[in-house]
Design a protein around this nucleic acid. Structure first.
Lengths: 341, 341
DNA sequence: GTTAGCACTCAAATCTATCGAGTGCTAACA
DNA sequence: TGTTAGCACTCGATAGATTTGAGTGCTAAC
């Protein structure tokens, strides 16, 4: 059976209505609140067809219809097509300028959560393909060194190193020069064994410090342990009865706390990110199984210099996709303009 | 009326039973499951007294009794007295050695949550009264400086400074020496206006960098914005029906997300921490109003060098206080031994 | 002081009846 | 042939009515 123009309109009307109310929608409602001017009986016939085509279902006999995942899907797809053309002039709250990236991202998560009334997450950019910008060793005391590592995009990490034997200021200075002249500007992949051994040789008795520093660099650059993910508005899920019962709520809240779960989401999103960067997962399409009953809208942001991250909105399947997509687009634009100051 | 030995025993029995079941407990249950060998009728008489004394209440006529906040209070107090003498040999899971304090604390929160089945929070140590150990400026590029600040206890913070005019390596070196010779070893309170102006004078045209650095130091040392609090097991609250209904759950989850709320708890706890360090807040005693229906057990840990923080367990009023206190004590001991390696 | 016995209370569970939104189908109509 | 009015039917939801049972308080006897 073909999805005629009219069926499409009816399906859209059903979805829209269901998004608002959360209640199954009946034929009479559609007949009244659309400009189709059809009687409820006609609508019923069409709805029977739509049900056969698996775009909608009845939760039980003698109830209205609700969209299936497939139904949502065609709704979202057509909507996204329209969105592409449209230049929205949406005025959402603005992100404040923030010199610290982590604060900015936290703020982003919060903003999205309050604007949309769904739960949000923002992953800190992964810095895989980044280049070293600066290595700075400082003597804290005789037996301890502080290594500060800065990579492209101004991501900074510190590590304290314990040294095996007392070390003087001059040695530290020499090591600094040695490391910086040879390592600055290099990407991790370029730091190979040959280079390392050569450096160690030049460092003489302090070769073990060189190893330690290089270890620290490696750890800094792909440290999956402390992958930062900021979340906000997790308690918004209580606003949607279909998610608020304790078992599903508990599962969801758990997933939000366990950053590992969210990380999967981030990884999968980054892997399949396309030009537009916005992707919608409905129900079972979700990359993480704990969110089968939700919809997830993700966007990939790119701050340049290889700093890519993921922003996600998680809500019920009947989320206001339009609003969410608009909000995401807007936030991305803002991030862009702030960060490329 | 006096709280006789027998009444005390009955009260304890009521509380214990209620902790387990969460159901109002009746006279028959008590008469059967205690070694008092009293009939239910006698128990009833005693319970009537206990009710008059406001240690227990009936949720409604013809229901069993449940403890009031006051009832819990005397229960907890007597229990704590016994605990003090006892040397528990509790074997809970061990914290793994972790070089990074934040990871260790995250782990602590998780451990407590899984061991107790309640929600947990651990605040990173506040570093208020700490001394500067090291200031290190590095030139990232012509217009940017990286300031690394290390305080007692090896807490490290970085800030990027934009400078108004190009700066050379030598100037940076000079500034480093200037700042370190004058500031190292000082507590924040000791950095007064006089010192600052003198430093600025010596810095000449780069006086504004000095201000920036000192601002950064101040911000580092009492930065309430990014007070780190790690939480875990928030979804455990769904295990207790009295907290799981969506309105209270939402409120609690919200409080856990909004670190500001937890911060209040931390501040208040630190303010009134005593020698033992363990404190129990029952219901309305709670310092934060969103947790009126919960009990909170907090402990203050002290890693030396002024690094004090708070650990808290949040659960229903009918929490297993004994287990929680044991767990907290154990974790404190472990933290102590790990950190003072 | 303790206990058995009994009337009483009240939340929770179970049952029953009613309501109404919504459907599918049929027959009539344009 | 597509649309519509009409009607019987279904079934969740809501509201009362009824029953059940755990628990109480009180009294009288031990």
């Amino acid at each position: 059976m073909e999805l005629s123009e009219r069926k499409m309109k009816i399906l859209q009307a059903i979805v829209r209505n269901y998004l608002e109310t959360g209640e199954p929608v009946g034929s009479r409602t559609i007949s009244k609140y659309t400009d189709l001017n059809l009687s409820s009986a006609t609508i019923r016939n069409e709805m029977a067809d739509l049900e056969e085509m698996e775009y909608i279902v009845q939760p039980h006999t003698s109830a209205g219809r609700i969209p299936t995942d497939l139904g949502y899907r065609v709704y979202v797809d057509t909507m996204m097509k329209e969105k592409d053309k449209e230049v929205e002039e949406l005025k959402v709250n603005l992100l404040e300028k923030e010199e610290r990236l982590d604060q900015l991202l936290k703020q982003t998560a919060k903003l999205l959560a309050t604007n949309t009334n769904y739960a949000s997450m923002v992953s800190a950019p992964s810095i895989h393909q980044n280049k070293l910008k600066l290595i700075q060793l400082s003597r804290v005391n005789e037996m301890q060194l502080l290594a500060v590592i800065v990579v492209e995009g101004n991501v900074i990490k510190n590590t304290l190193l314990d040294v095996s034997e007392p070390i003087s200021e001059e040695t530290v200075l020499k090591l600094n020069i040695l490391l910086n002249t040879h390592l600055t500007g290099l990407a991790v992949e370029e730091i190979n064994l040959g280079l390392i051994t050569s450096l160690k040789a030049q460092a003489g008795i302090h070769s073990n410090i060189v190893s330690d520093v290089i270890d620290a660099v490696a750890k800094t650059i792909h440290d999956d342990d402390d992958l930062e993910i900021y979340t906000s508005g997790t308690n918004n899920i209580f606003k949607y009865p279909e998610l608020a019962d304790s078992s599903s709520a508990s599962e969801l809240i758990g997933a939000f706390e366990e950053k590992r779960t969210l990380n999967e989401l981030v990884v999968k999103t980054l892997a399949e990110s396309e030009e537009t960067g916005i992707k919608v997962y409905i129900g079972n399409e979700s990359p993480v199984s704990t969110m089968k009953d939700c919809s997830i809208v993700t966007a990939t942001y790119d701050l340049g210099e290889g700093m890519k991250g993921t922003i996600g909105i998680i809500g019920p399947k009947r989320m206001d996709y339009e609003k969410v997509v608009d909000n995401l687009k807007d936030v991305m634009r803002q991030l862009d303009s702030i960060y490329k100051k």
